[in-house]
Simulated assay, not measured.
Amino acid sequence: MRAGAADRVSGEGEKRGRKASKETRRQQLIEATIDSLAKRGYSETTLADVADGAGLSRGIVNFHFESKDNLLVATLQFMSEEYADHWNAALDKAGPDVASRLWALVHADFDRKICTKRKLAAWCAFWGEAKSRPTYQALCGARDVKYQETVIGLCAALKAEGGYSYEPETMAVSLCAMLEGLWLRLMMGDGTTRERALEAAVEYVVTVFPNHLTRQGPKS
């Protein structure tokens, strides 16, 4: 390899390394923000807390995000995208069978990757601020609509297959409220475990969709 080509390859490698380092540090700061929100709450979280939690200087936090507001928006965006990617992946893995898709969607909410004490507490902190912060509402709004539409579609397909008498939109609201309520119970730390919450969710859908689901899973 000629010297000029080698220099170009070396320069490109260094550029990729700097980019990777930047992304790694941003992610470190976001994870530290989640930890701080879980530990201290929204109002008590500071840039200094986040920097200390990430093991980085406050100057690094300022470099990447400039302000606490920017850092919190980035953290909410990360959590929202992670959640959406997670349930979409669960549906893709489940395949076309509608009962299997609903089963996968319910289980996705209680997966260890998503349903952790620190992330639930961080969600709770953001939800407490959402009403007075339109940015937060706008950030999650489109994904919430997509999720709701997906659940309505599943309920409509299950009704068509099973001859149920419910209205799909009303049932979708009920199902989403049940899942959100179980997350709230987990956030409150009243002794409900992730496993117990999943059992409760399964009991609900088995009762509502008896022609499609059993406690062991979708009927074949």
Rank of each mutant, 00 (worst) to 15 (best):
E180V: 14
G11D: 12
W103N: 04
G17T: 05
T46I: 09
A157N: 03
R118P: 04
D69V: 08
V202K: 02
A89I: 08
A108C: 11
G17Q: 02
G189R: 00
A160P: 05
T24L: 14
N62F: 03
S21F: 06
K22V: 15
R196K: 10
A20D: 12
K146W: 08
A201L: 01
R2L: 12
E169T: 14
W183Y: 14
R194V: 12
A121Q: 13
K15H: 03
A3R: 12
G153D: 02
S100Q: 10
R18M: 09
V61G: 07
V61D: 06
E167F: 04
R185P: 10
Q27P: 00
R8E: 10
F209W: 05
G11S: 13
S36A: 14
A160D: 12
A89S: 10
N70H: 11
V205R: 04
R185G: 15
D144I: 11
G217Q: 07
K93R: 15
V50K: 03
A121I: 08
H212F: 05
T150F: 08
V9S: 05
Q28E: 12
F65A: 03
S132L: 06
A74G: 11
T150W: 06
E12I: 09
A38L: 07
S165L: 03
L175C: 10
H212C: 08
T33C: 10
E169L: 05
A84N: 06
E12W: 02
R185T: 14
F65D: 00
G141T: 03
V98L: 05
G181V: 07
